[in-house]
Design a binder for these strands. Structure first.
Lengths: 119, 119
DNA sequence: CTGAATCCCTGCCGATACTG
DNA sequence: CAGTATCGGCAGGGATTCAG
């Protein structure tokens, strides 16, 4: 997150009064927070085209380091955009699948792309 | 970063092959780059409601430091989203006005907000 | 194959102080 | 009123290495 060094696990935080954290009180910022990070949209775009494994994504997006890719995926999973599906057996295979919410990002990216295109 | 250190006007640059900079090749990232930075959307939202002076914005968005606010405004001006209108005389007054492109961010923020709301 | 751990470096962001 | 200057902290992100 932006900062606030360590989250209080139990405490409600309740910053409604001063709105110190924009992400908590502002829907636009919530979405931007999900999409935050370089190339995150490209990861989502790739998954909008179908399920992908880690290696699939690595090959499709060579500009992301392993760490960056893993970070993006973990963040998107935690945001409820992706689901991680581990397949048993060897070699280990993991499929990343968009959730219902994740699929709704399609139109969002479309709008973002349209505006950026017209700029 | 966002852009290459020093643009060589003559050299083709031609980064299409590797696409090292997402902002340059990806319309979605262009838009996200414009909206980058904490509370940037709130600044735009505020200006969508009408022209504002620096002090107006400072009062409406007390969570931004002067520096942060000045940074956002400068960035948005450079992105072609805002226009800075200095008025002669004393005391100095500066009005920030959305450009045509800037006004088109209204629907974009709407979509972002809708998605974040539904999450 | 799918990541997690580490290191380091960059640049964002906040606070304060100061100028035209 | 409308900013700029400066400093410092801390998280983000890249490269490499290691583990399940």
């Amino acid at each position: 997150m932006s900062h606030r060094t360590a989250g209080h696990p139990g405490l409600p935080d309740d910053a409604r009064g001063d709105a110190a954290e924009p992400s908590a009180s502002c829907p636009e910022e919530v979405t931007l927070d999900v999409l935050r990070g370089r190339w995150t949209t490209l990861v989502v775009r790739e998954l909008l085209r179908g399920d992908r494994s880690f290696t699939d994504l690595r090959q499709a997006l060579p500009m992301l380091s392993d760490k960056a890719l893993a970070d993006r995926l973990a963040h998107l999973v935690q945001s409820g955009v992706l689901e991680r599906r581990r397949q048993p057996g060897w070699p280990p295979r993991t499929q990343y699948v968009l959730t219902q919410h994740g699929r709704r990002l399609g139109p969002v990216l479309q709008v973002l792309g349209d505006w950026g295109d017209a700029l």
